[in-house]
Simulated assay, not measured.
Amino acid sequence: MEPLEPLPVIRPMLATPGPLPGVGEEAEWAFETKWDGARCVVAVAGDGSLRLSTRAGDDVTARYPELAEIGRLLGGRAAVLDGEVVALADGRPDFGLLQRRLGVVNPRRAAQLAVRYPVHLVLFDVMHLDGRPLLALPYRDRRSLLSGLGLVGPHSSVPGYAVGHGQRAWDITLRAGFEGLVAKRLLSPYTPGIRSDQWRKIKHTPAQDVLIGGWTEGRGGIAGLPGAVLAGVEVPEGLRYVGSVGSGFSALERRDLARLLAVIPRDTSPFMNPVDLPAHWVEPRLVAEITMAGWTAAGRLRSPVWHRLRSDLTRDELGG
Results as ranks from 00 to 15, higher is better:
residue 33 T to D: 00
residue 192 P to S: 13
residue 75 G to I: 02
residue 166 G to D: 07
residue 242 V to P: 12
residue 282 V to T: 11
residue 144 S to V: 01
residue 302 R to V: 00
residue 107 P to W: 11
residue 300 R to C: 06
residue 135 L to A: 15
residue 306 W to G: 08
residue 171 D to M: 11
residue 117 Y to P: 00
residue 247 S to K: 13
residue 211 L to H: 04
residue 59 D to R: 13
residue 287 V to C: 10
residue 158 V to T: 14
residue 188 S to T: 10
residue 302 R to M: 01
residue 295 W to P: 06
residue 120 H to A: 01
residue 202 I to N: 03
residue 312 D to M: 01
residue 139 Y to A: 05
residue 256 D to S: 08
residue 239 L to H: 03
residue 206 P to F: 02
residue 205 T to Y: 04
residue 8 P to H: 10
residue 243 G to M: 14
residue 10 I to L: 15
residue 204 H to G: 13
residue 183 A to P: 09
residue 39 R to H: 12
residue 215 W to G: 02
residue 178 F to V: 01
residue 122 V to M: 13
residue 63 R to W: 09
residue 256 D to L: 14
residue 88 L to I: 02
residue 293 A to M: 04
residue 164 G to K: 12
residue 94 D to R: 11
residue 72 R to Q: 13
residue 215 W to N: 07
residue 12 P to T: 08
residue 35 W to A: 12
residue 185 R to D: 09
residue 162 A to Q: 11
residue 10 I to F: 10
residue 158 V to H: 05
residue 187 L to I: 03
residue 163 V to H: 04
residue 79 A to T: 14
residue 24 G to W: 01
residue 267 D to G: 12
residue 157 S to Y: 00
residue 7 L to Q: 14
residue 37 G to L: 06
residue 225 L to E: 07
residue 87 A to S: 15
residue 261 L to P: 06
residue 81 L to S: 08
residue 230 L to Q: 09
residue 255 R to G: 06
residue 7 L to W: 13
residue 83 G to T: 04
residue 236 P to Q: 09
residue 211 L to E: 12
residue 263 V to D: 13
residue 193 G to P: 06
residue 308 R to N: 05
residue 140 R to G: 00
residue 204 H to S: 08
residue 283 E to C: 11
residue 184 K to M: 08
